[in-house]
Simulated assay, not measured.
Amino acid sequence: MSCESSHTRDHHHEIPSPPEDGWRNSGVQVIPADSLDTNTAQTPGMNRAAAINLARAGAQKLWAGTVTIHADAKTGAHHHGHLESIIYVLKGRARMRWGNNLEFTAEAGPGDFIFVPPYVPHQEINALKDEDLECVLVRSDGEAIAVNLPDVEPVERPETVRWIDPTHKNLP
């Protein structure tokens, strides 16, 4: 049985009546790359640009956009309140530090996903000295929250943490 067929069978939802415009303007939206909005919550050391949120696309439960960290640069420590964040690395090499004193670290490259749970203090670092780090960013709510933490004192030598898939951790 395919995942799609079990998904379809397990979820019975009534489709609402279409809006007056028949979904023409309130259905699928394509946001061109050159129309992203930089008037969103920012953290020193990076440039965020919103593509999809409540104001721009009517998204009720998501915020999506891009983030660029210049070569050999890093952000200040920050968190995103109650929001979950997903970062997808398009280009470059991301070094993430997290924890109350940024005591943990891990790296991600093109094609890798990074998950940041709510309230986790973290810092994004471009691990490359000669190439911008470009990522796609998705958050679990339409609001843009960035709480900068200027008083965080990073440890000198963070511990490298390797991710282990919890659904496969007991396999040989």
Rank of each mutant, 00 (worst) to 15 (best):
C3A: 13
C3T: 13
S5H: 05
S5K: 13
S6L: 13
S6R: 10
S6D: 10
T8H: 12
T8S: 14
R9D: 09
R9G: 00
H12Q: 09
I15H: 02
I15D: 08
P16E: 02
P16I: 00
P16H: 02
S17L: 02
S17V: 05
P18T: 08
E20C: 00
D21M: 03
G22A: 06
G22R: 06
W23F: 15
R24G: 01
S26R: 14
S26L: 13
G27Q: 11
V28A: 13
V28P: 12
I31Q: 07
P32L: 12
P32M: 14
A33C: 10
D34Y: 12
D34H: 15
T38F: 06
T40Y: 03
T40A: 07
A41L: 07
T43D: 04
G45N: 10
M46Q: 13
M46D: 05
N47L: 15
A49L: 12
A49E: 11
A49I: 08
A51T: 05
A51E: 02
A51I: 06
N53T: 15
L54Y: 14
A57D: 03
G58N: 03
A59M: 04
K61W: 10
W63L: 13
A64Q: 07
G65I: 04
G65Y: 02
G65T: 04
V67D: 01
T68N: 06
H70W: 00
H70E: 12
K74F: 08
T75C: 10
G76I: 04
G76F: 03
G76W: 08
H78V: 09
H78D: 06
H79I: 05
H80S: 11
H80R: 09
G81N: 10
H82A: 14
H82F: 09
H82I: 12
L83Q: 15
L83H: 10
E84Q: 11
E84R: 12
S85H: 05
I86G: 04
I86W: 10
V89E: 05
R93E: 05
A94N: 07
A94L: 15
R97H: 04
G99I: 07
G99T: 10
N100L: 12
L102I: 05
T105M: 11
E107Q: 06
E107S: 08
A108P: 04
G109E: 08
P110A: 01
D112S: 14
F113W: 09
F115D: 01
V116A: 04
P117T: 07
P117W: 13
P118Y: 01
V120E: 11
P121G: 13
Q123M: 14
N126T: 07
L128E: 14
D132T: 05
D132Q: 02
L133P: 00
C135Q: 08
V138I: 15
S140C: 01
D141I: 00
D141M: 00
A144W: 06
V147W: 03
N148C: 07
N148K: 12
L149A: 06
L149W: 02
P150N: 07
D151N: 15
D151F: 08
V152H: 04
V152W: 01
V155P: 00
V155H: 03
R157N: 11
R157W: 01
P158I: 00
T160C: 00
V161L: 07
V161R: 14
R162V: 14
W163G: 10
D165V: 02
P166M: 11
P166E: 11
T167E: 12
H168Q: 14
K169A: 13
K169V: 05
P172M: 00
P172C: 01
